[in-house]
Design a protein around this nucleic acid. Sequence first.
DNA 1: CATGAATGAGCCTTCATTCAT
DNA 2: AATGAATGAAGGCTCATTCAT
Lengths: 193, 193, 193, 193
Amino acid sequence: MTSTPLRKDAARNWDRIVAVARELVDRGTPLQLNDVARRTGLGVGTVYRHFATPEALLEALATPCLEDLAAHGRRALADTDPRRALEGFLTRTIEAQVTDASLAPVAAASADALPRTTELKETLWSTGATLLDRARAAGAVRPDLAAADLVPLMCGIAYAVDIRGGASADRIDTAHRYLTALLGGLWAAPTAA
Amino acid sequence: MTSTPLRKDAARNWDRIVAVARELVDRGTPLQLNDVARRTGLGVGTVYRHFATPEALLEALATPCLEDLAAHGRRALADTDPRRALEGFLTRTIEAQVTDASLAPVAAASADALPRTTELKETLWSTGATLLDRARAAGAVRPDLAAADLVPLMCGIAYAVDIRGGASADRIDTAHRYLTALLGGLWAAPTAA
Amino acid sequence: MTSTPLRKDAARNWDRIVAVARELVDRGTPLQLNDVARRTGLGVGTVYRHFATPEALLEALATPCLEDLAAHGRRALADTDPRRALEGFLTRTIEAQVTDASLAPVAAASADALPRTTELKETLWSTGATLLDRARAAGAVRPDLAAADLVPLMCGIAYAVDIRGGASADRIDTAHRYLTALLGGLWAAPTAA
Amino acid sequence: MTSTPLRKDAARNWDRIVAVARELVDRGTPLQLNDVARRTGLGVGTVYRHFATPEALLEALATPCLEDLAAHGRRALADTDPRRALEGFLTRTIEAQVTDASLAPVAAASADALPRTTELKETLWSTGATLLDRARAAGAVRPDLAAADLVPLMCGIAYAVDIRGGASADRIDTAHRYLTALLGGLWAAPTAA
DNA sequence: CATGAATGAGCCTTCATTCAT
DNA sequence: AATGAATGAAGGCTCATTCAT
């Protein structure tokens, strides 16, 4: 996938950088390349060689997760139940966002640092669009919801979970609750009368 | 309302500062007191005297809007239809958030710079909680929705509108669509069969 | 003594300022006229009217103490035992310095803010000089000690007490020990053999 | 001695910084890192990289001098005459303090910026304590003088020399006079009768 | 006389990025 | 390739003093 496979030592440095960055992001510490350099024991220059900007490093962190989502998306596209497919896809997306702190900023960014990120995001958005179209065609989804709304709504839910705060263990539960609420509506289902 | 009415010249400066800050916030420029000082032509010290921190200035911008919301909240509490009351309150809240850029950060902040802000936020949150309780008691709202979810969800929608981008003229429409979606659910209402 | 006796309200302000300043100095807080103004509840301008600079205020604090010392000096000059007179005078001086935090900086300053301060300092220095001369003439004091050394040495001892630190209750004891050491010498008196 | 030897260019900058700082300190100008940066023609960041705080820079100035004193201390500890050893040590200490303006603040500070400084100060204080103990044991020193008094007294004398003012050429003489006075006492030795 | 708003020089510090070694 | 020293714009904040009200 990578144009030039890295030399062995360069690959080791790449790994160390990503590992340290992962830790920082998980702790909520802002990613600063200088800081990463110090913590890895590498020179600043080395870190910059690998990641030209903090955003690039962040996207590198997010990549595996985006790839997982893309893989799930491919499976969802094979699902014959359009509603279940969409719901599963959205659920995974939200779970990923509230679980991995690197995702939210990458998802929200309008410009990407790495081509790979753009590629993955486009794949995901188009997967989402297809799933939405199918669900709408099946009459499962309210008609005024456009593909362009999917990402914002997912980001919005993730953001709501952040705002809500609370133990990190509860984040997934909250995310599920919010997604369910969004899907089913806050209004109670009219009791069959 | 203000403890000590400002001297005339001080009031004029206060106004200039707020006006400049308003412009910056509307343009999406981060609020920096030194920057505000430069643009108003006032000394830094003057700006600091009026607003000890950028947050205080931001909250000063948000205050009138929060007061309007609180006023609306009082009217909503008088409404006899619990569902309509809640919906109206939430609608106003979202409209305010996507209309006035100073609100979102103030709503999301866990600590306030001005006592007045805390006061207003508490009033609003408790109004929301009351309206939600009534609606829930009337069976109009899904039971797993707590008062503590209201603010996060509203912030989430406002955030989604931001992410969605697009012409600022469309922001209110988008906000309405998102709130409606959240209230009624993304799933199409089951056709009466 | 004061050229124009203050109006009653002005006198009251003067007293409040001095009282607040006293407290600040005793606590070791740096004297800032703005700060004093806030704490007295007076306007900055009022404080500046009374004391043009922080130094002036400090000297105002020191004045009563300097006057006490001057009074003691006059009594010392009447003492017929030159050594006892000098020792008593130096003891009082040191006690004052380590007891009243406003004195050290005033004593060390080469320029004064208030004429009254200059007057008092000159009186004291000349009292010291006279007492030293008499003691020297009586053969009680080493001959290489000049009048110009008296102030520096006293300031030096006070400074040493500050450096030494410790409970403020011990400061006077330490000061006495240091003065005694200086007077009698660190070297043990040769035992009569 | 230095953990990591500096690169050649970095070492040159280090030297420039120290040289400029030396000049400022000797002139009595307060050490400000930005100021040092401007005068060296280096970037602020460079100066901050080398010396995180003004205190650190000051201590770097003081270090060679402290090392000289420590070396002298080692020689003094080898002296068999306890009184001469102590006197020599104190004399050197005072000479250093009135000669090198960087020493007094470092000696008086209760907290150090550089570990090396702490190390050197501790060495010196313990050398002083040992010399004092020996002298006291030999009956050469008044018994009420504790090791904890040594530093304050030396700082006090240095301070007295500063207060006294006068030509910088006279400072050493004055320092000698004051130390001699302190050691021998201001009172004239009783003439053998 | 009293007031206190305004001033703005001046200090401190951080950090993304470059480039000589 | 790797290193890490250097850069310096940029932002934050304080405080002594003045002067309009």
